[in-house]
Protein backbone atom coordinates (compact mmCIF):
# COMPACT_ATOMS: atom_id res chain seq x y z
CA UNK A 1 0.00 0.00 0.00
CA UNK A 2 2.80 2.40 0.90
CA UNK A 3 4.83 1.62 -2.25
CA UNK A 4 5.93 4.69 -4.14
CA UNK A 5 6.04 2.86 -7.46
CA UNK A 6 3.06 3.10 -9.77
CA UNK A 7 0.94 -0.06 -9.93
CA UNK A 8 2.37 -2.52 -12.42
CA UNK A 9 5.52 -0.48 -12.97
CA UNK A 10 7.85 -3.31 -12.03
CA UNK A 11 6.00 -6.20 -13.58
CA UNK A 12 8.24 -6.42 -16.64
CA UNK A 13 11.33 -6.74 -14.48
CA UNK A 14 10.06 -9.16 -11.84
CA UNK A 15 11.57 -12.63 -12.20
CA UNK A 16 9.04 -15.34 -13.01
CA UNK A 17 9.78 -17.35 -9.88
CA UNK A 18 9.16 -14.34 -7.70
CA UNK A 19 5.84 -13.68 -9.38
CA UNK A 20 4.76 -17.30 -8.88
CA UNK A 21 5.76 -17.09 -5.22
CA UNK A 22 3.89 -13.80 -4.91
CA UNK A 23 0.70 -15.40 -6.24
CA UNK A 24 1.03 -18.84 -4.66
CA UNK A 25 2.42 -17.79 -1.28
CA UNK A 26 -0.82 -16.54 0.27
CA UNK A 27 -2.80 -19.45 -1.17
CA UNK A 28 -0.37 -21.98 0.26
CA UNK A 29 -0.46 -20.19 3.61
CA UNK A 30 -4.26 -20.31 3.73
CA UNK A 31 -4.34 -23.98 2.68
CA UNK A 32 -1.70 -24.83 5.30
CA UNK A 33 -3.78 -23.00 7.90
CA UNK A 34 -6.88 -24.96 6.92
CA UNK A 35 -5.02 -28.28 7.12
CA UNK A 36 -3.58 -27.38 10.53
CA UNK A 37 -7.08 -26.50 11.75
CA UNK A 38 -8.36 -29.81 10.35
CA UNK A 39 -5.70 -31.80 12.27
CA UNK A 40 -6.54 -29.90 15.45
CA UNK A 41 -10.26 -30.51 14.98
CA UNK A 42 -9.62 -34.25 14.65
CA UNK A 43 -8.54 -34.47 18.29
CA UNK A 44 -11.81 -33.45 20.00
CA UNK A 45 -13.96 -34.92 17.21
CA UNK A 46 -12.43 -38.37 17.66
CA UNK A 47 -11.76 -38.06 21.40
CA UNK A 48 -14.48 -40.43 22.61
CA UNK A 49 -13.36 -43.19 20.27
CA UNK A 50 -9.70 -42.50 21.09
CA UNK A 51 -10.36 -42.94 24.82
CA UNK A 52 -12.25 -46.17 24.15
CA UNK A 53 -9.39 -47.55 22.07
CA UNK A 54 -6.88 -46.56 24.73
CA UNK A 55 -8.96 -48.40 27.34
CA UNK A 56 -9.12 -51.50 25.14
CA UNK A 57 -5.36 -51.32 24.79
CA UNK A 58 -5.15 -51.56 28.60
CA UNK A 59 -4.79 -47.96 29.68
CA UNK A 60 -6.35 -46.93 33.00
CA UNK A 61 -8.66 -43.95 32.53
CA UNK A 62 -10.32 -41.80 35.16
CA UNK A 63 -13.64 -41.76 33.31
CA UNK A 64 -15.84 -44.64 32.23
CA UNK A 65 -17.43 -45.01 28.80
CA UNK A 66 -20.78 -44.02 30.29
CA UNK A 67 -19.28 -40.80 31.68
CA UNK A 68 -17.78 -39.92 28.37
CA UNK A 69 -21.06 -40.35 26.55
CA UNK A 70 -22.46 -37.38 28.44
CA UNK A 71 -19.32 -35.28 27.90
CA UNK A 72 -18.55 -33.24 24.79
CA UNK A 73 -15.61 -34.23 22.59
CA UNK A 74 -13.67 -31.19 23.76
CA UNK A 75 -14.13 -32.14 27.42
CA UNK A 76 -12.98 -35.71 26.77
CA UNK A 77 -9.94 -34.40 24.90
CA UNK A 78 -9.00 -32.17 27.84
CA UNK A 79 -9.58 -34.99 30.34
CA UNK A 80 -7.28 -37.41 28.52
CA UNK A 81 -4.95 -35.30 26.36
CA UNK A 82 -2.32 -37.95 25.69
CA UNK A 83 -4.78 -40.68 24.69
CA UNK A 84 -6.82 -38.29 22.57
CA UNK A 85 -3.79 -37.12 20.60
CA UNK A 86 -2.23 -40.58 20.30
CA UNK A 87 -5.32 -42.24 18.84
CA UNK A 88 -6.92 -39.34 16.94
CA UNK A 89 -5.29 -39.86 13.55
CA UNK A 90 -5.15 -43.63 13.16
CA UNK A 91 -8.74 -44.78 13.69
CA UNK A 92 -10.51 -47.20 11.38
CA UNK A 93 -13.81 -45.29 11.30
CA UNK A 94 -13.11 -41.85 12.74
CA UNK A 95 -15.83 -39.23 13.01
CA UNK A 96 -13.42 -36.88 11.30
CA UNK A 97 -10.62 -38.60 9.38
CA UNK A 98 -7.26 -36.85 9.35
CA UNK A 99 -6.11 -35.31 6.05
CA UNK A 100 -3.38 -37.91 5.51
CA UNK A 101 -5.90 -40.74 5.99
CA UNK A 102 -8.06 -39.25 3.25
CA UNK A 103 -5.04 -38.76 1.01
CA UNK A 104 -3.89 -42.36 1.53
CA UNK A 105 -7.39 -43.63 0.71
CA UNK A 106 -7.51 -41.34 -2.32
CA UNK A 107 -4.13 -42.64 -3.49
CA UNK A 108 -5.07 -46.28 -2.90
CA UNK A 109 -8.34 -45.98 -4.79
CA UNK A 110 -6.93 -44.09 -7.77
CA UNK A 111 -3.33 -45.08 -8.42
CA UNK A 112 -3.39 -48.30 -6.44
CA UNK A 113 -6.32 -49.78 -8.36
CA UNK A 114 -6.98 -50.84 -11.92
CA UNK A 115 -9.02 -47.94 -13.39
CA UNK A 116 -11.69 -50.36 -14.67
CA UNK A 117 -12.28 -52.05 -11.32
CA UNK A 118 -15.17 -51.13 -9.07
CA UNK A 119 -12.85 -50.28 -6.24
CA UNK A 120 -11.23 -47.55 -8.29
CA UNK A 121 -12.33 -43.99 -7.74
CA UNK A 122 -11.25 -43.21 -11.31
CA UNK A 123 -13.90 -45.65 -12.53
CA UNK A 124 -16.60 -43.98 -10.42
CA UNK A 125 -15.49 -40.51 -11.49
CA UNK A 126 -15.73 -41.63 -15.12
CA UNK A 127 -19.31 -42.83 -14.54
CA UNK A 128 -20.23 -39.44 -13.09
CA UNK A 129 -18.39 -37.56 -15.82
CA UNK A 130 -20.61 -38.95 -18.60
CA UNK A 131 -23.91 -37.30 -17.53
CA UNK A 132 -22.00 -34.22 -16.39
CA UNK A 133 -20.57 -33.53 -19.83
CA UNK A 134 -23.75 -34.49 -21.69
CA UNK A 135 -25.88 -32.30 -19.43
CA UNK A 136 -23.37 -29.48 -19.66
CA UNK A 137 -23.47 -29.63 -23.46
CA UNK A 138 -27.28 -29.67 -23.59
CA UNK A 139 -27.63 -27.00 -20.90
CA UNK A 140 -25.14 -24.54 -22.34
CA UNK A 141 -26.46 -25.09 -25.87
CA UNK A 142 -30.01 -24.33 -24.72
CA UNK A 143 -28.76 -21.42 -22.65
CA UNK A 144 -27.03 -19.84 -25.66
CA UNK A 145 -30.10 -20.34 -27.88
CA UNK A 146 -32.40 -18.86 -25.23
CA UNK A 147 -30.08 -15.90 -24.76
CA UNK A 148 -30.07 -15.24 -28.53
CA UNK A 149 -33.88 -15.35 -28.47
CA UNK A 150 -34.06 -13.02 -25.49
CA UNK A 151 -31.69 -10.50 -27.03
CA UNK A 152 -33.57 -10.43 -30.33
CA UNK A 153 -37.17 -10.50 -29.15
CA UNK A 154 -38.63 -8.01 -26.73
CA UNK A 155 -41.52 -10.38 -26.02
CA UNK A 156 -39.14 -13.12 -24.93
CA UNK A 157 -37.09 -10.69 -22.91
CA UNK A 158 -40.14 -9.48 -21.03
CA UNK A 159 -41.93 -12.79 -20.55
CA UNK A 160 -39.22 -15.48 -20.38
CA UNK A 161 -36.40 -13.71 -18.55
CA UNK A 162 -38.28 -13.26 -15.23
CA UNK A 163 -39.17 -16.96 -15.30
CA UNK A 164 -35.61 -17.96 -16.10
CA UNK A 165 -34.59 -16.09 -12.95
CA UNK A 166 -37.51 -17.45 -10.91
CA UNK A 167 -36.69 -20.99 -12.02
CA UNK A 168 -33.41 -20.68 -10.15
CA UNK A 169 -35.07 -19.80 -6.86
CA UNK A 170 -36.73 -23.21 -7.04
CA UNK A 171 -34.51 -25.69 -5.25
CA UNK A 172 -34.24 -27.91 -8.34
CA UNK A 173 -31.55 -30.04 -6.75
CA UNK A 174 -34.11 -31.00 -4.14
CA UNK A 175 -36.54 -32.36 -6.70
CA UNK A 176 -33.81 -34.10 -8.66
CA UNK A 177 -34.61 -37.44 -6.99
CA UNK A 178 -38.20 -37.15 -8.16
CA UNK A 179 -37.17 -36.55 -11.75
CA UNK A 180 -34.93 -39.59 -11.58
CA UNK A 181 -37.55 -41.85 -9.98
CA UNK A 182 -40.32 -40.71 -12.32
CA UNK A 183 -38.22 -41.12 -15.45
CA UNK A 184 -37.12 -44.46 -14.07
CA UNK A 185 -40.74 -45.58 -13.77
CA UNK A 186 -41.34 -44.67 -17.41
CA UNK A 187 -38.33 -46.73 -18.38
CA UNK A 188 -35.82 -43.97 -19.04
CA UNK A 189 -32.68 -44.93 -17.17
CA UNK A 190 -28.98 -44.40 -17.05
CA UNK A 191 -27.36 -41.37 -18.57
CA UNK A 192 -30.36 -39.28 -19.64
CA UNK A 193 -32.13 -38.47 -16.32
CA UNK A 194 -28.91 -37.35 -14.66
CA UNK A 195 -27.96 -35.37 -17.75
CA UNK A 196 -31.33 -33.59 -17.59
CA UNK A 197 -30.62 -32.40 -14.06
CA UNK A 198 -27.12 -31.32 -15.02
CA UNK A 199 -28.52 -29.52 -18.05
CA UNK A 200 -31.12 -27.67 -15.97
CA UNK A 201 -28.48 -26.54 -13.49
CA UNK A 202 -26.01 -25.38 -16.14
CA UNK A 203 -28.46 -23.66 -18.46
CA UNK A 204 -29.25 -20.69 -16.25
CA UNK A 205 -25.75 -19.26 -15.66
CA UNK A 206 -25.11 -19.56 -19.40
CA UNK A 207 -28.37 -17.78 -20.28
CA UNK A 208 -27.73 -14.88 -17.95
CA UNK A 209 -24.07 -14.56 -18.95
CA UNK A 210 -24.86 -14.76 -22.64
CA UNK A 211 -27.66 -12.17 -22.46
CA UNK A 212 -25.16 -9.84 -20.83
CA UNK A 213 -22.50 -10.77 -23.39
CA UNK A 214 -24.71 -10.43 -26.45
CA UNK A 215 -25.66 -6.96 -25.25
CA UNK A 216 -22.03 -6.05 -24.62
CA UNK A 217 -21.31 -4.43 -28.03
CA UNK A 218 -21.47 -0.66 -27.74
CA UNK A 219 -24.18 1.33 -29.44
CA UNK A 220 -21.67 2.79 -31.90
CA UNK A 221 -20.58 -0.72 -32.98
CA UNK A 222 -24.21 -1.67 -33.52
CA UNK A 223 -24.79 1.53 -35.44
CA UNK A 224 -21.79 0.78 -37.61
CA UNK A 225 -23.26 -2.62 -38.47
CA UNK A 226 -26.48 -0.85 -39.38
CA UNK A 227 -24.74 1.61 -41.69
CA UNK A 228 -23.33 -1.42 -43.48
CA UNK A 229 -26.89 -2.66 -43.87
CA UNK A 230 -25.97 -5.85 -41.98
CA UNK A 231 -28.82 -8.29 -41.32
CA UNK A 232 -29.65 -9.34 -37.76
CA UNK A 233 -27.95 -12.68 -38.44
CA UNK A 234 -24.80 -11.01 -39.75
CA UNK A 235 -24.69 -8.70 -36.72
CA UNK A 236 -25.11 -11.73 -34.47
CA UNK A 237 -22.35 -13.73 -36.11
CA UNK A 238 -19.85 -10.96 -36.74
CA UNK A 239 -20.37 -8.67 -33.79
CA UNK A 240 -22.52 -9.99 -30.96
CA UNK A 241 -21.17 -13.56 -30.69
CA UNK A 242 -17.46 -12.64 -30.78
CA UNK A 243 -17.86 -9.90 -28.19
CA UNK A 244 -19.91 -12.19 -25.93
CA UNK A 245 -17.16 -14.81 -25.66
CA UNK A 246 -15.50 -13.53 -22.46
CA UNK A 247 -18.93 -13.54 -20.76
CA UNK A 248 -19.70 -16.97 -22.16
CA UNK A 249 -16.54 -18.51 -20.75
CA UNK A 250 -17.08 -16.93 -17.35
CA UNK A 251 -20.51 -18.52 -17.15
CA UNK A 252 -19.36 -21.84 -18.63
CA UNK A 253 -17.01 -22.23 -15.67
CA UNK A 254 -19.92 -21.86 -13.24
CA UNK A 255 -22.09 -24.08 -15.40
CA UNK A 256 -19.70 -27.02 -15.57
CA UNK A 257 -19.22 -27.03 -11.79
CA UNK A 258 -23.01 -26.93 -11.36
CA UNK A 259 -23.41 -29.76 -13.88
CA UNK A 260 -21.11 -31.97 -11.80
CA UNK A 261 -23.14 -31.25 -8.66
CA UNK A 262 -26.29 -32.18 -10.58
CA UNK A 263 -24.84 -35.46 -11.78
CA UNK A 264 -23.70 -36.40 -8.27
CA UNK A 265 -27.07 -35.60 -6.68
CA UNK A 266 -28.74 -37.47 -9.54
CA UNK A 267 -27.03 -40.66 -8.45
CA UNK A 268 -28.35 -40.57 -4.90
CA UNK A 269 -32.04 -41.57 -5.15
CA UNK A 270 -31.96 -44.70 -7.32
CA UNK A 271 -29.55 -46.43 -5.03
CA UNK A 272 -26.93 -46.37 -7.76
CA UNK A 273 -23.88 -48.53 -7.13
CA UNK A 274 -21.59 -46.70 -9.50
CA UNK A 275 -20.47 -43.08 -9.55
CA UNK A 276 -19.14 -40.55 -7.06
CA UNK A 277 -22.60 -39.95 -5.58
CA UNK A 278 -23.04 -43.68 -5.07
CA UNK A 279 -19.71 -43.76 -3.20
CA UNK A 280 -20.98 -40.98 -0.93
CA UNK A 281 -24.22 -42.84 -0.29
CA UNK A 282 -22.54 -46.20 0.33
CA UNK A 283 -20.05 -44.54 2.65
CA UNK A 284 -22.83 -42.94 4.69
CA UNK A 285 -24.78 -46.24 4.90
CA UNK A 286 -21.83 -48.17 6.26
CA UNK A 287 -20.26 -45.40 8.33
CA UNK A 288 -17.14 -45.46 6.15
CA UNK A 289 -16.19 -41.86 6.82
CA UNK A 290 -12.82 -42.13 5.09
CA UNK A 291 -14.59 -43.32 1.96
CA UNK A 292 -17.05 -40.38 2.08
CA UNK A 293 -14.25 -37.87 2.42
CA UNK A 294 -12.21 -39.45 -0.34
CA UNK A 295 -15.27 -39.40 -2.62
CA UNK A 296 -15.77 -35.73 -1.73
CA UNK A 297 -12.16 -34.92 -2.57
CA UNK A 298 -12.45 -36.99 -5.74
CA UNK A 299 -15.43 -34.84 -6.72
CA UNK A 300 -13.47 -31.70 -5.85
CA UNK A 301 -10.56 -32.81 -8.03
CA UNK A 302 -12.90 -33.60 -10.93
CA UNK A 303 -14.58 -30.20 -10.51
CA UNK A 304 -11.23 -28.42 -10.44
CA UNK A 305 -10.11 -30.36 -13.51
CA UNK A 306 -13.25 -29.45 -15.45
CA UNK A 307 -13.01 -25.77 -14.55
CA UNK A 308 -9.31 -25.80 -15.46
CA UNK A 309 -10.20 -27.37 -18.81
CA UNK A 310 -12.70 -24.60 -19.58
CA UNK A 311 -10.16 -22.01 -18.45
CA UNK A 312 -7.57 -23.52 -20.79
CA UNK A 313 -9.96 -23.40 -23.75
CA UNK A 314 -10.87 -19.84 -22.78
CA UNK A 315 -7.20 -18.73 -22.77
CA UNK A 316 -6.57 -20.37 -26.14
CA UNK A 317 -9.67 -18.92 -27.77
CA UNK A 318 -9.34 -15.43 -26.38
CA UNK A 319 -5.65 -15.28 -27.30
CA UNK A 320 -6.34 -16.33 -30.88
CA UNK A 321 -9.07 -13.70 -31.07
CA UNK A 322 -6.77 -11.08 -29.61
CA UNK A 323 -9.08 -10.58 -26.65
CA UNK A 324 -6.71 -11.91 -23.99
CA UNK A 325 -5.86 -9.53 -21.22
Amino acid sequence: MTDITAPGAAIGRTPLLFRIAHAAGPILAVVAGLIAFWYLACIPMNAAQSALEAERAGAELTTTAADRRTMSGLAVAFEHPTEAVAHAFVQERPRLPAPHQVMVELWDTTVGQDPTSRRSLVFHAGITLGPTLLGFAIGSGLGILLAIGIVHSRVMDLSVMPWAIASQTIPILAIAPMIIVVLNSVGVQGLIPKAIISAYLSFFPVTVGMVKGLRAPSQSDLDLMRTWNASALRTLVSLRLPSSLPYLFASLKIAIAAALVGAIIGELPTGAVRGLGARLLAGSYYGQTVQIWSALFGAAIVAAGLVALVTGIERLTLRRMGLAR
Partner: peptide, 18 residues
Protein backbone atom coordinates in the same frame (compact mmCIF):
# COMPACT_ATOMS: atom_id res chain seq x y z
CA UNK B 1 -7.16 -11.68 1.02
CA UNK B 2 -4.99 -12.83 -1.86
CA UNK B 3 -4.79 -16.26 -0.28
CA UNK B 4 -8.42 -16.63 0.70
CA UNK B 5 -10.09 -15.43 -2.49
CA UNK B 6 -8.85 -18.25 -4.76
CA UNK B 7 -9.37 -20.87 -2.05
CA UNK B 8 -12.86 -19.55 -1.29
CA UNK B 9 -13.73 -19.41 -4.97
CA UNK B 10 -12.57 -22.98 -5.34
CA UNK B 11 -14.59 -24.12 -2.32
CA UNK B 12 -17.68 -22.29 -3.58
CA UNK B 13 -17.51 -24.28 -6.83
CA UNK B 14 -17.24 -27.64 -5.07
CA UNK B 15 -20.18 -30.00 -4.60
CA UNK B 16 -20.51 -29.05 -0.93
CA UNK B 17 -23.93 -30.73 -0.75
CA UNK B 18 -21.80 -33.86 -0.55
Amino acid sequence: RRGLLPVGNFMAALPIVG
